[in-house]
């Protein structure tokens, strides 16, 4: 059934491997390509109008997921080395403390978004949380597309800054 996707994967192996390497896959690129293969051939997937773009997106998600897992492992290792002396096991369920920290962090991000002003915050929520295309947001808010673009850029920049501050704190 996934014959088609297998063929596209094979035909673009070099490009996709290069993409994984660009993401910093290093020596693991080969293994990650295998993982990509498994992801796209064994999981229920969305529809595929442009198979190569779909594979790139899947590869991109794979790499971002990998960095997320690494970050979580790092944070846990750090927290645990103080409390438990460094157990290797990763708890799949966040602890109460982690939930609390996450909640505070979200509060800070939410406040940073609010500080941008109503239009930019609303623009960003529509884009990121509701998945509305930029053109439609521009029409809804009665502003130009370039205003929407610049609001989105400002919002992401402000959120990154807010996160860095809380990381430093």
């Amino acid at each position: 059934m996934d014959q088609g996707m297998d063929a596209v994967l094979l035909a673009h192996r070099v490009q996709l491997m290069r993409f994984l390497e660009s993401h910093g896959a290093g020596d693991a690129a080969e293994d990650l390509f295998q993982e990509l293969w498994i992801r796209v051939t064994q999981r229920p997937t969305g529809p595929v109008g442009n198979p190569l773009a779909y594979l790139y997106r899947a590869a991109n998600n794979l790499m971002v997921d990998r960095y997320r897992a690494e970050r979580q492992a790092r944070q846990r290792d750090h927290a645990w080395s103080e409390v438990r002396g460094g157990l290797d096991e990763r708890a799949p369920i966040p602890t109460a403390e982690e939930v609390l920290i996450a909640r505070q962090e979200l509060g800070r991000l939410n406040a940073a978004l609010g500080a941008l002003g109503e239009r930019a915050a609303r623009c960003f929520r529509r884009f990121r949380l509701d998945g509305v295309p930029q053109k439609q947001i521009a029409a809804e808010l009665g502003v130009s597309l370039s205003t929407v673009e610049s609001d989105l850029r400002r919002a992401y920049a402000a959120l990154i800054a807010a996160r860095r501050q809380s990381d430093d704190a």
Binding site: V64, R68, L106, L109, N110, L129, L159
Partner: peptide, 15 residues
Amino acid sequence: ALLDGDLEALPVHPA
């Protein structure tokens, strides 16, 4: 990208 993923959890309504 990690930040962007985390934003999924933002409340839909502004504070």
